[in-house]
């Protein structure tokens, strides 16, 4: 099974589940369209089109270069880690950590290079969001931010 077919089947499952939940909300109540009517139609359309897409199967890939899976997975981990670190560590520490991790760990830049970029980007995002836009950025358990 290829990725194109697998995701089409997942979408079909989402469509089916959504339509079933919408059905229970009520399609037609008190002579009026109920809360479930529109989501039911959308879910049914998603189910039908995804099944058709799954049958259609593979799509012509226009990729000329192969994907570096190892690199992609490391980046994916960095993205997820950044999101998870926001609450406990705060936005500033999470940003510093992300840049250091990506530049040193994935891109093999020197520590000095990574550190400078990390400090600049952390300061920039803090300046823009905290100072200029007055967004109460998460400060984390250390209270930095």
């Amino acid at each position: 099974m290829n990725a194109a077919r697998l995701s089409a089947i997942c979408l079909a499952a989402v469509g089916l589940a959504a339509a079933a939940m919408a059905w229970r909300l009520g399609l037609w109540t008190m002579d009026r369209p109920g809360p479930g009517l529109f989501p039911f139609a959308a879910g049914a359309l998603l189910f039908a089109t995804s099944i058709a897409a799954a049958i259609q199967g593979e799509i012509a890939e226009a990729e000329d270069e192969p994907v570096d899976r190892r690199r992609l997975l490391r980046y994916a981990a960095a993205v997820a880690g950044f999101g998870l670190a926001m609450k406990p560590l705060g936005a500033v520490i999470a940003t510093l950590g992300l840049i250091l991790g990506v530049l040193r760990g994935i891109e093999n830049r020197s520590w000095a290079h990574a550190l400078v970029v990390a400090v600049v980007l952390a300061a920039l995002s803090w300046g823009v969001f905290r100072y200029f836009l007055s967004v109460p950025l998460p400060v984390g358990i250390l209270g930095i931010g």
């Binding site: 959308a42 998603l46 089109t49 897409a53």
Partner: peptide, 30 residues
């Protein structure tokens, strides 16, 4: 891209738009 896939995305978008409290009935959806 393929049309049937674009239709699936339209359906998913419509579905996502219905997440939240229904303003008419007050029912929570998804």
């Amino acid at each position: 891209g393929p049309r049937i896939r674009a239709w699936a995305m339209v359906a998913l978008g419509l579905l996502l738009s219905s997440v939240g409290v229904d303003l008419v009935s007050g029912e929570e959806r998804y």
